[in-house]
């Protein structure tokens, strides 16, 4: 395959970010739990010849809770996740945190921004970034 490994760069630091004003981890508080942490979704990214496709696991998000932006080669994915724990539930085991997802990538391939599409199903977000049509290769005659 063509050397495409440098087309995608992580942009900014998006690993688990603590939000301002959150003093407690959700497990410790008994009250209904708002999303206080932001998590980095796992992604698969592939390069078909026609497009870059991004698949992100964002369990607990819904189609209308996801914001995708593509600006100046930066693809930004943000998914808001509603807290699921009922206020009367007491934690017994706490192995993963529930919160919003956020991640950014720099895409160096030439993308047609108007043709970007996104689908969401069963907690998986698929973003298709079609490549811009390459400028046609033209033969320049040399005048003698």
């Amino acid at each position: 395959m063509n050397s495409t490994t440098n087309q995608i760069q992580e942009s900014g630091h998006s690993p688990v970010v603590r939000r301002p004003g959150s003093a407690q981890s959700p497990a410790q508080s008994a009250a209904p739990v708002p999303s206080q942490w932001t998590y980095r979704p796992n992604v698969d990214i592939v390069d078909t010849d026609a497009a870059i496709e991004v698949y992100a696991d964002v369990p607990g998000a819904t189609g209308d809770s996801i914001d995708i932006a593509f600006e100046q080669d930066i693809l930004s994915i943000e998914a808001r996740v509603q807290p699921r724990r009922h206020e009367t539930w007491t934690p017994v085991a706490d192995e993963f945190g529930v919160g919003n997802f956020h991640r950014r990538f720099q895409i160096d391939a030439a993308i047609d921004p108007d043709a970007i599409t996104a689908d969401f199903d069963a907690g998986v977000l698929k973003i298709t970034l079609p490549k811009a049509k390459q400028a046609q290769r033209r033969r320049i005659p040399v005048r003698a």
């Binding site: 085991a93 706490d94 993963f96 069963a122």
Partner: peptide, 20 residues
């Protein structure tokens, strides 16, 4: 990974299994 909760009547086990 599992989160487990309880109230008087039930236990609740929660797992993230996207794509399934």
């Amino acid at each position: 990974a599992l989160n487990v909760y309880e109230d008087d009547a039930n236990l609740y086990a929660e797992a993230e299994l996207p794509g399934l």
